[in-house]
Design a protein around this nucleic acid. Structure first.
Length: 500
RNA sequence: GCCUCAGUAGCUCAGCCGGUUAGAGCGGCGGACUGUUAAUCCGUAGGUCCUAGGUUCAAGUCCUAGCUGAGGCGCCA
């Protein structure tokens, strides 16, 4: 509700500052019949040489422009084509047609930018996501993508609002990092060295002392370690920034460049962490339900249309909006890793040998196992905690031996699993005991000197703390119901692909 | 990185067991109509069948290699 107020305030000042045009969202929301308005945008359709559906990005809805064609130059009307850019001044009237309540009877039409339909790649019809991905400079003009990117903005805004309202501080973690021990996969090297003439040390290795920063540097794979510095000074912080993984991942839920939200909180244990993540994720979904109903309704309908010709088992179990409401209205299931393994081994699927990978204590849960837990067994989001220490990162806090009746050492890690997406969040309570952490660092073979500052956080004024990382695009993917993560980021970067 | 599938008109696709001049819908263009909702109706143009080899009397169709894209798995958020 609060967001609507902000939108209105913005719209009111919009009238004063931008006297040249009014947003279509504003016209549709609070304009009076008979009032003269000027709107500008891109043509979505021009029917019967009389009705134009005008779109300007401000709303999922279009504004119908009625053109009395005898009054306009034929050559101008011919240029009102799909995705041409025009400005229209006219009076608002009640619509006689069924599709809309109000419309603008055009008095003046200005052609800002013609679009030759013979050369323009997009058409007013269904186009595949793969095709539109290749036209990323135009795809945001479509219904689907404009809705996705309005919602993407809404989620980003809600993230800042959620944390700000609760006393968290937005911490900017570095994008270029000199630390090679973050333990989150392959990294992109950052260098100004001449790749054709690399400086070498006496032993023949590349001499990074000659590089810009005087050492080897990479793009960040996580802001967590720096987030911990913030938490142990400001109490409650979060990072929200671009994150880079040079993994050769070819899936519908991986990007080489994505955005990640990483809250980090002092005096937090794994329970607090789970409570935070559940409340936070529900807040984001509720925010979109409350503020982007038109966009969600469009995406919901789009999915229904796409699924019309699909087999029942390939369809979503629930329509998009119902799914979102269900997640908001129900508790997430919380289980331990040890329980998860037991459930999997007791399952019909395991006994009938339907799993490709054997669920076994000590091995990581495979995608098929996570999907079984979330989609078949619990049928709702699941938080799995206390994983075997051997398969998790060095910084996660070691549990007391025998926690959950586990047969081996576990760490206070947690993963949040969502239907259709899998892991949206990975987090943990951090190891705050200096001696235990040092042992782990050594056991992982990480050079101590790389992490001197991280270890000193434990040596001087340390405390229990916890945090998690939310994959922003994965959350956008879930909320919009899109099928591929490349379609919820404006310009996707994936292996072999960095166009635009 | 591994596995699978696909590539035919601007787009989405059909093209059977290899057989004459490669088709449809949408879109474009020309016209008609004019309160439409992806408007409708009539007409019309539009093709290096991904590329390179090969098999064959004959290849869009079969074989080999490559390129591109998609999906699944792994890695993870």
């Amino acid at each position: 509700m609060c967001f609507l107020k902000i939108r209105r305030t913005f719209a009111a000042s919009n009238d004063e500052i931008m006297i040249r045009r009014t947003d279509i969202a504003t016209v549709l929301a609070n304009s009076d019949i008979g009032q003269e308005v000027t709107v500008m945008g891109w043509v979505r359709a021009f029917r019967s040489n009389r009705f134009s559906a005008l779109y300007d990005g401000s709303s999922a809805k279009t504004l119908q422009i009625v053109v009395d064609f005898e009054r306009f130059d034929e050559n101008l009307l011919k240029k009102i084509t799909f995705h041409a850019c025009i400005g229209v001044t006219g009076r608002l009237q009640e619509s006689q047609g069924a599709g809309q309540a109000i419309e603008v009877l055009a008095d003046k039409i200005e052609l800002w930018g013609a679009t030759d339909p013979e050369q323009y790649p997009l058409q007013p019809k269904f186009q595949t996501m793969e095709f539109l991905r290749e036209k990323a400079h135009f795809r945001m003009r479509t219904n689907t993508f404009s809705s996705v990117f309005r919602i993407r903005h809404g989620i980003a805004y809600a993230i800042h609002k959620y944390f700000h309202d609760r006393g968290y501080f937005y911490l900017h973690a570095p994008i270029i990092t000199g630390s090679d021990a973050e333990g989150a996969g392959e990294m992109f090297r950052v260098t100004t060295l001449d790749l054709d003439h690399l400086p070498r040390t006496e032993s023949g290795e590349v001499d990074f002392e000659a590089d810009f920063f005087g050492k080897a540097t990479n793009l960040t794979v996580s802001g967590q370690l720096q987030g911990e510095i913030g938490a142990l000074a400001l109490g409650k912080v979060y990072t929200f920034g671009p994150t880079f993984r040079a993994e050769n991942s070819n899936t519908t839920r991986h990007l080489a460049e994505f955005w990640m939200i990483e809250p980090e909180v002092a005096f937090f244990d794994i329970e607090d962490n789970m409570n935070l993540v559940e409340d936070f994720l529900k807040y984001l979904i509720r925010f979109v339900l409350d503020n982007y109903a038109d966009d969600l309704a469009f995406l919901d309908q789009r999915i229904a249309d796409l699924e019309k010709n699909m087999k029942t088992e390939d369809r979503r179990p629930m329509p998009l909006v119902d799914t979102l409401r269900f997640v908001v209205d129900n508790e997430f299931e919380r289980i331990t890793y040890t329980e998860a393994i037991r459930l999997l081994r007791d399952s019909k699927e395991f006994k009938k040998d339907r799993f490709e990978f054997t669920p076994e204590w000590g091995k990581d849960l495979q995608a098929e196992h996570e999907r079984w837990l979330v989609e078949k067994h619990f049928k709702k989001p699941v938080i799995v905690r206390n994983y075997p220490a051997a398969i998790k990162a060095f910084y996660m806090r070691i549990n007391e031996p025998g926690t959950d009746g586990a047969p081996g050492d576990t760490v206070a890690a947690m993963d949040v699993l969502f239907p259709g997406i899998g892991e949206v969040v990975g987090g943990s309570q951090r190891e705050e005991r200096h001696d235990v952490l040092l042992e782990r660092v050594k056991a992982f073979g990480i050079p101590e000197e790389e992490l001197w500052w991280y270890l000193e956080l434990r040596k001087f004024g340390g405390c229990p703390h916890a945090g998690f990382g939310l994959g922003f695009e994965r959350m956008v993917l879930f909320i919009t119901g899109m099928g591929n993560i490349r379609d919820v980021i404006p310009f996707p970067r994936t292996p072999q692909s960095a166009e635009f």
